[in-house]
Write a protein that binds this DNA or RNA. Structure first.
Lengths: 225, 225
DNA sequence: AGCGGATGTTACCGAAATGTCACCGCCGGG
DNA sequence: CCCGGCGGTGACATTTCGGTAACATCCGCT
């Protein structure tokens, strides 16, 4: 599930992206109107979250452009008290709006509701490169090949790795995400899980191409197509 | 198709009821929490539309009560800016929300979408491959053979499986769909129900061809004819 | 009340998932 | 050069999970 987030405030943008990524969404971002349109065309997101005040135009322009070619749900971010803005947003075809400031929890809930309403809710499936992880079925599709069956823990591990594809995810974060606050500090658990997962998804488990080790830090999922 | 509407504002209530009635729905109403629960029990509506602010309690209480015994779609009405409210509503198992003020047209569209999603707007039967499930009569037709009688729970289970034929449906989703928010987490119920259903519909219940297990995840209905 | 089917509970088995332990090899710092 | 930490690996123990059966309850109906 891919979400386009457009905002020119770097703090807000990274907060929003972090929250969405943590929840297993793939996020693509932009900070101005032209690049937003370009990213939209290139990435075909399933949902767009647009700030209204942007350099070089407004979120309305993006919304209009999106609506010309797509019916994906659009959520607008408005400053408090800008009633006319939100009326205009809804007129332009936006599906929901959020008044700043808002909590990440609220954002998540609304985003999910929008996707559900649009019938796009997958129960969760995430993609990176040629990998597609189905969180509900615990299946990993690799290109056209028959899907690989994963266990619960394996798919949780892949979930956070895919959500952070291309970046190293620290050992502690992995432990917490997969096992919760138990097992915190137990590297052995992670060692074994990584080992078992590699047996399933790596061509040559002894020379990992996908699930790579970041010595002394954690692991990283290679994000090439 | 029967819809329960709960709101203490008589103007809004009559507006909503008028719109729904015009569209061919049967509407039952209530203006406070106790009578809402009573009406719910007496009328078994297919959809509930609940205001949050009510005399004698809140829409949350109704939602919780409904979810304890049913999984019908619930739509909550929130005042603008009550972000926390709607997060809580969705947490409690509400399926959608609408921010006041809203247009009757929007309400209709959302209500229809919810009913469609719940598979309730089919006046009759669902089909996949050689299977045809009659939701009214709780009968399952397999090809030309004489129909199999199903119990209420069995047909609910088949309903969601058929609606997602070919895809794995997660254990939690099955539990929620069949038993409502109760029974959540009780895998044994599902085990037994699947077992009993297989006895009825599988050629060789020990080697299921139709209702297949997705280990560690859920079950899947084979969708070929 | 009494009946019969539907549903919920408990228990057991074998298989798969997960956790634990022991040992290997690598590498950098005394 | 040896030591100790770290990651990888395999073997084995423990736990969880799904299938099954037997039995207990519940529920609607006469």
């Amino acid at each position: 599930m891919k979400i386009l987030v457009v905002d020119d405030d770097p703090d807000l943008l990274s907060l929003v992206c972090f929250a969405l990524t943590q929840s297993g969404f793939v996020v693509v971002k932009a900070t101005d109107v032209p690049s937003a349109l370009q990213v939209f065309a290139a990435e075909s997101p399933d949902l767009a979250i647009l700030d209204i005040n942007l350099p070089g135009g407004s979120g309305f322009d993006i919304c209009t452009a999106i609506r010309r070619q797509s019916r994906i749900p659009v959520m607008m971010l408005t400053a408090r008290g800008e009633e006319e803005d939100l009326v205009r947003a809804l007129d332009l075809g936006a599906d929901d709006y959020l008044t700043k400031p808002f909590s990440p929890r609220t954002l998540l809930a609304r985003a999910r509701a929008l996707l559900r309403r649009a019938g796009l809710e997958t129960g969760g499936s995430m993609t990176v490169g040629a990998l597609r992880l189905d969180l509900e079925a615990h299946l990993l599709h690799v290109g056209e090949a028959p899907p690989v069956k994963l266990t619960k823990l394996e798919s949780r591990l892949l979930q956070i790795l895919i959500a952070n594809a291309g970046n190293v995810v620290g050992t502690e974060r992995l432990l917490t995400h997969v096992w919760g606050h138990r097992g915190s500090g137990d590297r052995q658990l992670l060692k074994q899980l990584v080992h078992r997962l590699r047996q399933k998804i790596e061509e040559d488990p002894a020379a990992p191409q996908v699930l790579q080790t970041a010595a002394g830090a954690g692991y990283r999922l290679e994000e090439k197509g």
